[in-house]
């Protein structure tokens, strides 16, 4: 089953204003930079709800969509490092739902696994638990959290095959595999695209059943937020 599309522009066909997107990545590590760039070139797509751990920086990653005011709501765990984000949030232009990172990951994993909700201890006793069902198990309190499913999930992998099987590299894996599971339509952009059989089945992280479109991106920028070196 060949799932290959030519490029990011073709991959994002069907994404419309008002949709909910999941975008992989932690900080700028492992973000689908080609699809984000393509979305920023399509400013008529607006009012997006974006589920992503972070919101990029001012001039890269999701920051590009924020600059264009294409995002209505962000669901993230940490949104520092982005002045435009902060400005839009404080002025009320942008709706923000801050979610504990493990809960965010589990909302995607569970949504992608056909589990509509789950109990977690994260955030019990804080404003995160306001209005949510609390249940006690074995003497400890847990919050009921609903899972997420997206209209489109957009992920970045290291290697992929034309059937959509994916292998991630190092900590660029992060949210990508769980978001890939939770998309009604999942787009994967990869650095290397090979024929079926060229990836070792033992090493595949995401099974192609979860991936609907795949393409090879060229010249990844892979910007580093905190280049830290030892002497």
């Amino acid at each position: 089953m060949n799932k290959v599309v030519n490029n990011a522009e073709e991959a994002i066909q069907g994404i419309e204003s008002g949709m909910t997107l999941m975008l992989g990545g932690f900080g700028l590590c492992g973000i689908p930079e080609k699809c984000i760039a393509a979305l920023s070139q399509s400013p008529s797509i607006k009012d997006l709800t974006c589920i992503s751990n972070n919101a990029g920086v001012d001039d890269f990653g999701l920051g590009l969509l924020l600059q264009n005011k294409q995002i209505k709501k962000m669901i993230s765990s940490y949104v520092g490092e982005n002045d435009e984000f902060e400005r839009q949030m404080l002025s009320g232009e942008l709706e923000v739902e801050l979610t504990p990172q493990g809960t965010l990951a589990e909302k995607c994993r569970a949504g992608g696994a056909g589990i509509p909700a789950f109990f977690t201890p994260a955030g019990y006793g804080t404003e995160i638990s306001d209005g949510k069902e609390i249940r006690e198990f074995n003497g400890k309190k847990y919050i009921l959290e609903n899972s997420f499913v997206s209209d489109f999930s957009i992920v970045k992998a290291w290697k992929g095959d034309t059937d959509g099987n994916l292998i991630f590299k190092a900590t660029a894996r992060n949210f990508n595999p769980v978001m890939a599971m939770a998309g009604k339509i999942t787009i994967a952009e990869v650095e290397e695209l090979v024929a079926p059989g060229e990836l070792d089945p033992n090493q595949i992280h995401t099974a192609g059943i979860f991936v609907h479109r795949i393409f090879k991106g060229n010249n990844y920028e892979k910007r580093i937020e905190q280049r830290t070196v030892s002497s």
Binding site: C29, G102, L104, F168, F175, I224, E225
Partner: peptide, 24 residues
């Protein structure tokens, strides 16, 4: 390596026996 960072988004290295995994 841009693909190898810690939770503070700093570039880091692995140790012998290191493991990578997803956020969930």
């Amino acid at each position: 390596d841009a693909d190898l960072i810690n939770a503070g988004k700093q570039t880091i290295t692995t140790m012998p026996g290191s493991v990578f995994f997803d956020s969930a």
